[in-house]
């Protein structure tokens, strides 16, 4: 029972606005938003952080995080963030992008931002599907996975293989920190938090491009319960998208 000897050990982060998100029940966007908010609070950078919102389910992130925000055209968040960071180099600029945004229409922008070694932090939520538009096949959809536009399962002979963005971007000399994490259980959520914090610290040290790919769920469009969606990440997504640090640049070895 709550009494005067109890102290609060977990509370709502200051950098999250008080409103309720529009996300479906069990959607892990909310977890990733919280991790970013906690990181911003812990680093004390709320007043100088500018986020760039994507197009997709997380388009309204500017309503949920209590920092400055700009809304980019679909996939162009890294390009817009480049402009903001170069104009205001003392600010902390991050983008939050889904897989439809980052790995489909925005593939060119993210690759060139990493190739240029822009001082940006990218949080990439990969749920292997287009959520907002109704569950169509994304470039990250797993082989054999059923979506509304691949009703008999993704056929790699016809539709090709899913993109592994972390592995791809880790090849870039400009990329400083590339990691893939997951939010399917509390232990992995805590590891994701640490990686997101590192990605922001990389920018604070002006060490170049940092991206954290977070495997997230979409219970509504996967047609499963929130609990089964987390099991799907663990059993189906992890084998294709292994977790780990794909690039840790020499300049940031002491941070990780």
């Amino acid at each position: 029972m709550l009494n005067e000897h109890m102290q609060t050990v977990f509370d709502y982060p200051d950098a999250l606005t008080p409103g309720v998100t529009h996300y479906c029940p069990g959607c892990t966007h909310g977890i990733i938003h919280r991790l970013i908010a906690e990181t911003i609070d812990e680093l004390g950078i709320r007043e100088k952080t500018i986020g760039v919102a994507p197009v997709g389910c997380s388009v309204f992130i500017y309503n949920y995080l209590d920092t400055d925000f700009a809304e980019a055209a679909h996939g162009r968040a890294p390009a817009m963030a480049t402009g903001i960071k170069r104009t205001l180099p003392d600010r902390i600029v991050f983008t939050y992008q889904g897989d439809g945004d980052l790995a489909a229409i925005g593939t060119a922008e993210i690759i060139h931002a990493a190739a240029r070694g822009e001082n940006l932090t990218v949080i990439f939520a990969n749920n292997a599907i287009y959520g907002m538009t109704g569950g169509q096949m994304a470039p990250t959809t797993l082989p054999g996975m059923r979506t509304t536009s691949s009703p008999s399962g993704r056929d790699v002979e016809v539709q090709g293989w899913p993109l592994k963005m972390s592995e791809l971007l880790a090849q870039m000399p400009g990329a400083s920190y590339i990691a893939r994490r997951s939010v399917h259980d509390p232990g992995n959520i805590n590891k994701t938090k640490k990686a997101i914090k590192t990605a922001f610290q990389v920018q604070l040290h002006q060490a170049g491009f940092a991206m954290v790919e977070v495997l997230s769920s979409c219970p509504t469009n996967w047609n499963v319960s929130p609990k089964d969606a987390l099991t799907f990440i663990k059993e189906q997504m992890l084998p294709y998208y292994p977790l780990g640090d794909y690039k840790i640049g020499d300049a940031i070895k002491t941070l990780v």
């Binding site: 102290q7 050990v9 982060p13 998100t21 909310g30």
Partner: peptide, 12 residues
Amino acid sequence: TICPDVAITVYR
């Protein structure tokens, strides 16, 4: 930690 809607406050 797992609550997607940050609805839970924890006391110890």
